[in-house]
């Protein structure tokens, strides 16, 4: 028998840690998705795929990326408890703090995304601004004409996208006090999930039929790889310590299992994978349903990991019955 009683009832701490609500999962999801957008559009630029089609989605998705990232940062800002001091993030660089790395990476991500978006000024903007964008259009055409420049922008986007995606995972995995998060491959899980959500989104809005199939195939690859990373994630936790094994059980059969199996694995990976496999094999037409499910699964993954991670603990310090 182990019985613990405590007089401590600190808000957000007891009976179990719950410092992060909806804002952080939303921020991590949007950050991961923007990372995926940067990697995919960067790859399209790097590989020269943008030349094959005037409607290449690599020119459209970065604009959406800027909007999503801004929303994500707004969510992060809403989560801060001492908002008037937010500027303090940019008065220092704390080399050991993933959050400090993230703050500075985000500063670099915006211009990188804007550089890709500026490579093709949308037709609607040209009409709306009635020739006032002439110089910018000329400049963007000149850059687009230079293979070296587009390649460089592509590489920079892939690199920064990779860093951003890795950061969203390391942010949690650096917090070793929560066994569920202290996995050395959480970053990989978040990067793959971000890539899959970004591919799903680009697939949904792609106008070029060849590109649509290409993105659907890529997304299928990411989803299959994500299942593989999940397996490694759980094997890693199960072979670390009792606390980590209990943390893994929270998702596999405990309090968070229904959300995990239904929303993350079932609706977020398996069903869209089947639908997209049928679509790329020509059995059914491409439908936005599968990409929407993939993105919903990515969001559900962040919610489940953030919530269950806060619940996971090195000791059952508060006499709570374990939820399995």
């Amino acid at each position: 028998m182990l019985e613990l009683t405590t007089t401590r009832h600190n808000p957000m701490i007891d009976p179990t840690l719950h410092v992060w609500g909806w804002e952080i999962p939303v921020y991590l999801f949007l950050g991961g998705m923007v990372a995926g957008i940067m990697i995919i559009s960067g790859y399209f630029l790097f590989s020269g795929r943008h030349r094959a089609s005037t409607q290449c989605s690599c020119f459209q998705v970065p604009l959406v990326g800027i909007a999503l990232l801004t929303l994500g940062m707004l969510a992060l800002f809403l989560d801060l408890e001492h908002k008037p001091f937010t500027w303090r993030l940019y008065t220092t660089f704390e080399i050991k703090s993933p959050m400090s790395w993230g703050a500075w990476i985000l500063v670099l991500v915006y211009p990188a995304l804007a550089a890709v978006a500026a490579l093709r000024i949308p037709e609607s903007w040209r009409i709306a601004f009635k020739g006032r964008l002439a110089r910018l259009v000329l400049f963007s055409e000149r850059i687009r004409g230079s293979a070296a420049a587009t390649k460089t922008i592509g590489i920079v986007n892939m690199l920064l996208g990779g860093l951003l995606g890795i950061y969203t995972g390391v942010l949690l995995s650096a917090l070793g006090a929560r066994p569920l998060w202290s996995s050395s491959i959480l970053w990989l899980l978040f990067v793959v999930s971000g890539l899959s959500s970004a591919a799903a989104f680009a697939h949904m809005i792609a106008r070029d039929p060849y590109e649509r199939v290409l993105l659907a195939k890529a997304d299928n690859g990411f989803l299959i790889f994500e299942l593989f990373v999940f397996a490694l994630f759980f094997i890693g936790l199960a072979s670390t310590s009792e606390a980590h094994l209990r943390a893994a059980q929270l998702l596999l059969g405990g309090a968070f299992a229904p959300a995990f199996w239904v929303f993350v694995i079932g609706l977020g990976i398996i069903i869209p994978l089947i639908v997209q496999l049928m679509a790329v094999n020509g059995k059914i037409p491409h439908t936005p349903m599968a990409p929407i499910l993939v993105m919903g699964g990515g969001l559900a993954l962040r919610f489940v990991i953030v919530s269950a991670g806060q619940f996971s603990h090195w000791m059952n310090a508060h006499g709570l019955p374990l939820p399995f």
């Binding site: 701490i13 001492h82 908002k83 303090r88 703090s97 310090a317």
Partner: peptide, 20 residues
């Protein structure tokens, strides 16, 4: 006056010794 209230330190402490 330097703290932004991000709560990372609350999550990082295995003893749950901090609060906002």
């Amino acid at each position: 006056e330097k703290c932004i209230g991000c709560k990372a330190c609350l999550a990082a402490c295995p003893y749950d010794a901090r609060f906002v």
